[in-house]
Write a protein that binds this DNA or RNA. Structure first.
Length: 412
DNA sequence: TGTCCACTGGAAGGGAGGGCTT
DNA sequence: AAGCCCTCCCTTCCAGTGGACA
């Protein structure tokens, strides 16, 4: 082979000027169609600059409606202004999907506040109260106003209850030399219903609802990113509109639109084409669907895979709306087949709920009168993804079950 | 109107695994 | 090494339930 293998691609002119403009983490300098939300946050948080405690806030909205990016934008400016005015402001952004227990939330904040000589807090081991004490001590040591952002807070409450929020919202009674305020970000408008009324009234002193973006609004957001991220005249007619429309269909998710556009451009690039057309967008759409589901399937624990496999098996046999009991029987047989002890029906009921949350199945509760109450289960994996194939590659045991599927079928 | 089915989902707790403290 | 503490995954127990049917 002649020359370096990278040379061929390296020489090509990219359609991108700055690919980072399409990253989820990219922080744009302006936020189209979010003026009201920015203003509401600013009005409340300005108190921090005067050394007062801002109200705790809850921000609601569907994924990709700008909650996180607006919060980061406002807090960034708040930090700058605080520094300029000599007013100490500390902010903490915690993603509750990653940091999802009381202990770890305290530990994360306290670690960010650690100064030279402070004992490092292990990620498990200490009694939670001790971590809380350390946190209070460090906050008081630092002084000023501390703003804690809990992103995807609904996830935390669902997993760990509202004990943490109780502690955090009553932190100010323990602090002597500093003040603290909580900003919760939630995808679920009704999540406060799971909270103790005392906690919920303290937490949602001020609520902001982020409405989903409409297609024209998404277009504006894309336009701005295109101007910084892409070379001129790269987008063919209708491309931007199609990306916006598809994303608007998906509950107005601006992140989805950015992904679609970025992948569409990549598709055009890979084909050495000078401009992007709607065909590239369609390709990008299928790839996104595939990419969303495949990693989830691959990392599923064994019993979840077996359960999903059982549901798919039933569907391959033409059965839809399968009951929990039916699913359990198929699942047990699949377990027998590969000599694995099946879990109990109670556990399977929970696993079905988990698969439903992951969006891999659709499960809804129905009552058939004397026929009893149960779930109706259907697989929800896009047809672009062949779940069984994906699973077989990643899990030899499942492959075995899949190979024995016809025998299994005979047993049904 | 009451019964009854096939579950659901909450509560409690066991046990393994990981880590810290004394 | 023993004693704690926390998380995760799971089981066991059981009260509760929506709605067809007698």
């Amino acid at each position: 082979m002649e020359g370096n293998i990278f040379e061929k691609i390296l020489g090509h002119d990219s359609l991108f000027v700055d690919r980072r403009a399409f990253d989820h983490a990219f922080e744009p300098s302006t936020l189209p169609h979010r003026d009201h939300e920015v203003e509401a946050l600013v009005r409340n948080l300005v108190d921090a600059l005067n050394g007062h405690i801002p109200s705790n806030m809850l921000l609601y909205g569907v994924p990709g409606s700008g909650k996180t990016v607006v919060t980061r934008f406002v807090l960034g400016q708040l930090l700058d202004k605080g520094e300029e005015m000599g007013q100490r402001v500390e902010t903490y952004e915690i993603n509750c999907r990653v940091v999802d227990t009381k202990y770890r939330v305290f530990q994360t904040i306290a670690t960010q506040l650690a100064r030279r000589g402070d004992t490092p807090i292990p990620f498990t081991g200490w009694p939670t109260d001790r971590v809380l004490d350390a946190l209070i001590e460090r906050m008081d040591g630092a002084g000023g106003v501390h703003i804690i952002v809990l992103d995807e807070i609904d996830n935390l409450v669902a997993r760990a209850g509202d004990g943490l929020l109780y502690n955090l919202t009553s932190l100010n009674t323990s602090l002597r030399n500093s003040r603290c305020c909580i900003i919760g970000i939630s995808n679920d408008l009704h999540f406060t219903q799971q909270l103790d009324p005392r906690v919920s009234s303290r937490l949602s002193q001020e609520d902001i609802v982020f409405h989903p973006y409409g297609a024209p609004e998404i277009s504006d957001i894309l336009l701005e990113r295109v101007s910084t991220g892409l070379r001129e005249d790269v987008l063919g007619p209708g491309v931007l509109e199609l990306c916006s429309a598809l994303a608007a269909q998906e509950h107005g998710d601006a992140r989805r639109a950015l992904d679609l556009l970025r992948i569409s451009v990549q598709k055009a690039e890979q084909r050495s084409q000078k401009s992007v057309d709607p065909r590239h967008v369609r390709m990008a759409q299928s790839q996104l669907e595939y990419d969303q589901v495949t990693p989830v399937l691959k990392t599923l624990p064994l019993h979840q895979k077996l359960l999903l496999f059982s549901i798919r098996l039933n569907e391959e046999n033409g059965l839809r709306n399968i009951s929990t009991g039916e699913t359990y029987r198929t699942y047990s047989e699949a377990c027998m087949k590969i000599r694995v002890e099946p879990l109990t029906p109670r556990r399977i009921s929970s696993l079905l709920n988990e698969l439903d949350t992951l969006g891999l199945i659709m499960a809804r509760n129905v009552s058939k009168g004397r026929g009893g109450r149960s779930k109706q289960v259907n697989s929800a994996i896009p047809k672009a993804v062949d779940a069984i194939t994906t699973m077989s590659e990643s899990e030899p045991l499942i492959a075995e079950a899949a190979l024995g599927r016809y025998n299994l079928q005979g047993l049904l």
